[in-house]
Design a protein around this nucleic acid. Structure first.
Lengths: 318, 318
DNA sequence: TGAGATGCGGCCACTTCCTGACCGCAATCA
DNA sequence: TGATTGCGGTCAGGAAGTGGCCGCATCTCA
């Protein structure tokens, strides 16, 4: 406790907590003389964390943004908020950020006290994306467990049901989680098969950390994402949606956000393209846009739009 | 550099980076003798961060979850991911978590180096919720600026356009951001009026940190959320949607997630309630559910459903 | 079952640096 | 102008960190 390091951490924490701190109060809280406090502040500055100081009657210290990210000292609330936010981002709410989010999440989760983990799990329901459509529902706990195994280089056991055939129990050395095309995959060395395999996370249940550590192998090519991509290349799926909409391109783009690409066709119309697994999502978009549209592909989209339209009309006139 | 505190932080950082570290390697990286490393590890343990150690041929050190949240030492990627995730959560992706997320976000943003802030802003487009409907589009930069002002206890200047009347420039002492009913409000002491006021964030533009600090006043009642709630009580808005759907309650609940409440009506049907500002969202839900439904309220929902249905049918048959 | 790798921690002598006290100075604000 | 608050030099005493040495405990693998 009388430790210098501990005091520095507490000081950092206090400076992060909020606003300006009068020097005397800081010295008081840390139970040192003002002179020592000044020295501590100096030390922080030497470490690269810019502490701003103001003199005069309302002076004080404040931690400012610097060149490096300082150690984040979080309270429980904040830690939970960060975990929840990362989980949401990992679930695909922010395009292209899933993997980084999961990696950061694994770090946070691993360091979080169990009582906070419970709170996060309790929020599982809240994080359920609901209507978001698109990708299959993902169990955040599953994802987290796997991420922890990858991070901790721990062997993993789980049940897996391939697209065809019966389920079986697997025992693997997890290598990396990869998010491709709205789906998550685990790239791992299958200990029973003695070869590299990939597993779709939504077909995988009951992952168990075994506690057995391993020294990671080198994946062929060195890049798990590239490896996964080449694996998937042979397996085409999903719909390629293309629709001409009677609204200017900027309007449409603003509406669909990241979930599709829009190109202008004329001043008043545009072509919307989306890649989806599930047609209900584009149908919703078309319905909400409220403009005339012409389906170019796929034909199934017409059927689905018709079905949804009829449902709505029936309900509206009931 | 030769500082003990700095070395402790580096050690914490290394232990967080990944997996197991052999003691010799850690000692090597920190440029100390193995004996000192052991002492450092001891120090960490005394500080409450449980460092797990394994003996034997594949032994090493690993940081485990403990009672407290250890200082998070993040690299650039992770910091950005966390900020992006928090921003998403703050935008309302996770019900009930907006405020905590914004508070945590303010902390992270404030500490983040400017170059990383730029990266986060560049991702603004990606975080745009697109179709998510519901609440009005919120400018994350605005929200962040205000959160920073609240945290840093800095006076704030901005332009405000009330519901009725002309816009004007305001100069306030920001107190707290409050998220209520899918909308954000700033509770602040208006320096020109000399009284407490609330401002809807989506009516507020160009917030400027002035750098002028202030000592926070006490809000009447002490609870800004309660205060805001009482302010809003007099102003009814929004639709109260109630629809009976021909699908069992669990199905519907799973579908709408957090965005509504569902109660069973019979084994095969349920009542869905939502509170929204914009009816296009419930219309989408009804269309996607693909089940018969009866609108109980509001009547406008029928019109909107009919309009969307007709749009879809026209498009499908073109 | 035994050998080697790895972490644990007591002891000691040496050195570093931390601390509190005192001082005068420099901004800032009313 | 005076009060407040931060800045930093100097000094002496003491606390603490350090590396090297030791024997021991525990784990894995052959």
């Amino acid at each position: 406790m009388a430790n210098t390091s501990a005091r520095m951490l507490r000081l950092l924490s206090l400076l992060q907590t909020h606003r300006y701190w009068p020097g005397t109060e800081l010295a008081d809280r840390l139970e040192v003389s003002p002179r020592t406090l000044r020295r501590d502040v100096d030390r922080l500055r030497e470490l690269g964390y810019p502490v701003d100081a103001a003199r005069g009657v309302a002076g004080g210290y404040q931690l400012q943004a610097g060149a490096a990210v300082p150690p984040l000292l979080l309270d429980d609330e904040e830690a939970v908020a960060i975990a929840v936010g990362l989980r949401t981002a990992a679930a695909g709410a922010v395009a292209g950020f899933e993997e980084t989010s999961v990696r950061a999440l694994a770090k946070v989760i691993q360091l979080l006290p169990p009582r906070l983990r419970k709170r996060i799990d309790a929020l599982q329901a809240a994080t359920a994306p609901g209507v978001l459509g698109g990708g299959p529902t993902l169990d955040a706990a599953t994802l987290t467990t796997i991420a922890l195994a990858c991070r901790g280089e721990e062997r993993l056991r789980f049940a897996y049901t391939p697209r065809e055939g019966d389920g079986s129990s697997r025992y693997v050395e997890p290598h990396r989680l990869v998010s491709l095309g709205r789906r998550w995959y685990l790239v791992a060395w299958d200990l029973d098969r003695g070869d590299w395999r990939s597993f779709r996370i939504d077909r995988l249940t009951g992952p168990q950390l075994t506690g057995a550590r391993f020294r990671p192998r080198e994946i062929p090519g060195g890049d798990p994402v590239a490896w996964m991509r080449s694996r998937l290349a042979a397996v085409p799926t999903r719909y390629d949606v293309s629709v001409v909409v009677g609204r200017p391109a900027p309007d449409v783009q603003k509406f669909v956000g990241q979930w599709g690409t829009v190109e202008p066709v004329s001043a008043a119309s545009s072509r919307l393209r989306m890649n989806v697994d599930d047609l209900s999502w584009p149908v919703m978009v078309l319905g909400m846009l409220g403009a005339d549209f012409t389906v170019e592909s796929p034909p199934e989209l017409r059927d689905q739009a018709r079905a949804a339209g009829e449902t709505l009309l029936r309900g509206a006139d009931r």
